[in-house]
């Protein structure tokens, strides 16, 4: 057993149940994400599609969670809600002790900027900007001055070992490097959660492993990581796997033996 395992907080099923069921009550700041009865419906030309039908979930700070589910299970909708890109039709969403489910567009933009770092399947880097500028972007919207921005962006790039590629544009980087730039961008504003949507979907298996390694390192240093994926072997890297099916949580398992998976 390495010493870090003691620092990593993991929620027990009982704890989660207690937090989730106390509707209206403000959760402890230690609970990064608490959703209570989260519902999202879409009107597809008169036909109501119930993408989420009341999801209750609680995630503690420093957890490394994979959200799985077949297509149509509502996992993308759930990710959009968690990422504050969308608002629920019903239910509560507390992010770091703040009720975000009722916020308007601009407040959500601020929350996304401050609390969430996105990593996308297709990287979503600005094609005409250098790696450094891409990493700087969240800081630009946070209103941070140019000099500090450069410094912090460089720091973030160094963390993903891409400081020597700072001036390169995305099309001059390999897929794995692009995803690492995206991770640096996600982390540069020190978000509460790192939210990854199929982070290895566009990568070959070797590069995927490389990216998963980065995620594991982040999780070990105390970063909350939430990863949406449909690949079981990618989800296997996480310490907790939440499976969605038909807009509801089908299973929520904590991996007791995750350390063995890390090869520690």
């Amino acid at each position: 057993m390495s010493p870090h395992t003691d620092d990593v907080a993991l929620s027990t099923t009982a704890e989660r149940a207690a937090v989730v069921q106390a509707a209206g009550a403000q959760p402890d700041k230690d609970w990064v994400i608490v959703t209570r009865g989260l519902k999202r419906e879409y009107d597809m030309g008169g036909e109501i599609v119930r993408a989420l039908r009341g999801v209750d979930l609680a995630i503690r700070r420093n957890e490394y969670v994979a959200i799985m589910g077949p297509s149509g299970s509502g996992k993308s909708t759930f990710m959009n809600l968690i990422g504050c890109l969308d608002t629920p039709n019903a239910g509560e969403y507390w992010l770091s002790g703040e009720l975000v489910s009722q916020k308007n567009d601009d407040e959500l933009a601020r929350v996304r900027n401050k609390e969430i770092g996105f990593v996308f399947q297709t990287f979503n880097l600005l094609p005409r900007a250098s790696a450094l500028h891409n990493v700087e972007l969240p800081l630009v919207y946070a209103g941070i001055g140019s000099a500090e921005r450069k410094e912090r962006a460089m720091e973030a790039l160094t963390k993903v070992q891409l400081d020597n590629r700072a001036t390169h544009r995305p099309n001059e980087l390999s897929g794995g490097q692009r995803q690492r730039v995206a991770i640096a961008r996600a982390l540069v504003n020190r978000p509460s959660i790192l939210l990854a949507d199929e982070p290895t979907g566009n990568l070959d298996s070797t590069t995927s492993e490389e990216i998963m390694k980065v995620f594991e390192n982040l999780a070990e240093t105390g970063q909350t990581v939430i990863m949406v994926t449909h690949e079981p072997d990618i989800a296997a890297h996480a310490r907790r796997v939440v499976v969605l099916r038909d807009g509801l949580i089908a299973s929520d398992e904590r991996k007791e033996n995750f350390t063995s998976k890390l090869g520690l």
Partner: peptide, 16 residues
């Protein structure tokens, strides 16, 4: 459009 989406995801407000 995609760039706008990225910027919004990273915290750009409407006014930005």
């Amino acid at each position: 459009t995609r760039e706008i989406g990225i910027r919004k995801a990273l915290g750009a407000k409407r006014s930005d």
